[in-house]
Nucleic acid binder design. Sequence first.
DNA 1: TTGCATTTTTCATATGATGAAAAAGTCTTT
DNA 2: AAAGACTTTTTCATCATATGAAAAATGCAA
Lengths: 246, 246
Amino acid sequence: MEVFEFLSDTQGKSLSTLASDLNQSPATVYRILVTLGGRGLVEFDQVDQVWNIGARAFVIGSRFLRRTSLVERARPFLRALMEESGETANIGIEQDGHVLFVSQVETRASIRAFFPPGTLSRLHASGIGKALLAEMDMQRFEKFLARAPLESFTEFTLTDRDALLEDLQVTRQRGYALDGEERNLGMRCIAAPVFDIHGEAVAGISVSGPTSRVGLDQVSRLGQSVLAAAGKLSAAIGGKSKQQMP
Amino acid sequence: MEVFEFLSDTQGKSLSTLASDLNQSPATVYRILVTLGGRGLVEFDQVDQVWNIGARAFVIGSRFLRRTSLVERARPFLRALMEESGETANIGIEQDGHVLFVSQVETRASIRAFFPPGTLSRLHASGIGKALLAEMDMQRFEKFLARAPLESFTEFTLTDRDALLEDLQVTRQRGYALDGEERNLGMRCIAAPVFDIHGEAVAGISVSGPTSRVGLDQVSRLGQSVLAAAGKLSAAIGGKSKQQMP
DNA sequence: TTGCATTTTTCATATGATGAAAAAGTCTTT
DNA sequence: AAAGACTTTTTCATCATATGAAAAATGCAA
């Protein structure tokens, strides 16, 4: 199991590299790989003599998205958002202090942001992440903070607790979050939370694109679009934000 | 491991149901689930008291698609194909006698075919499947046949070996495959193979839609579009069909 | 409160995971 | 072709842990 997970983080490695990295005997790792291979969870690349994640893992993992209809229902809204904004539209959820990107509708523009499904990105340095953080109660937020330091990705990343809290306050008032080159230089992302029937923010919707197209003068316009799309999806799943709760 | 895989096939089950289905003691299954749960590979739904595939499995499985750049490179072609045809464009690969759908670009049309990533469908009753079968040598084809009977899904499904062979012959001559309500009544799918640098058919591209829009009079037109898109993707990855091999 | 079903924990035993070592395979150099 | 180095695969004895039975805990309905 450890081999399986390690392999997913650092794919395309030989048996001896894996054994060395995992500090386990090659014989053990070999047998695990062969067992996993027999089930299709990993695959051996004969050409390069390396091991990779297998198709069966993809099939199994895909089942994760089928537990709710959220992603399926989100797709028309994501498409409309992509078309309205001209940028790639994403939906992501919170997972262990990270945003997990689960689905995208890509723009046709030649320079585009793309986070393939399965991408993990730190909450504090992500539009969707901050939209979700802004909806957390302080207890949960403190728990998030205690998990790991606020890692710096660019000069713009918010690594100070108070700076982050202030940003989240602005996010709540504004209704949408802005990742202004905090994760990747030259990229901006605007996101809003999606609420379920309990008033919980269960996902975030965003548009992301290069700073050349998503200038600061575009943020407000795109923010309204994202907010509207997130609101429509929330409504579509019978959701409402806490302000609308009785 | 067996629990993990079983859970992906039949999600949302309670501990005792799983234990009964797997013919294992509840204690064993419980501990396996708890171990898998600790790693995020499965998750317990407190509300319904059932176990589901977890986010970590999705993350790991997603790595399967990152082994090659095929899917990423295919997306622009899929998008163009969707826009040209007005139908949902898919890319799938062969996996253990099935088509594994790995990515889609959905149409906006109100009635649409959608096979979420991770969907498995029998080769012989699928456009992509038949496009790939048509490129197999007889040895591999016989191996495919020996694997399982040609299951019938609709009255149109090809369940006779000779009928299938004839269809594949037509597919080869024509360049594209047609699934004419063979998997789902009311649905048609047109597909063509994508070749790699070795001249191997490594994937299939298709458009699929309801018979109301994909009438028999549309098949030839759409076939040309699919064929062109598959050809472009093949060229983009340095691929060529066997006929083009020296 | 009682009874029943399900889940969770404990415990003794059996199974199989483990690493060392040997065997086999692969590649490069002479 | 032979030798050497390295990697992978198989064998084997040992021990760690997976297993199921049983007990304890929890949850739900009457």
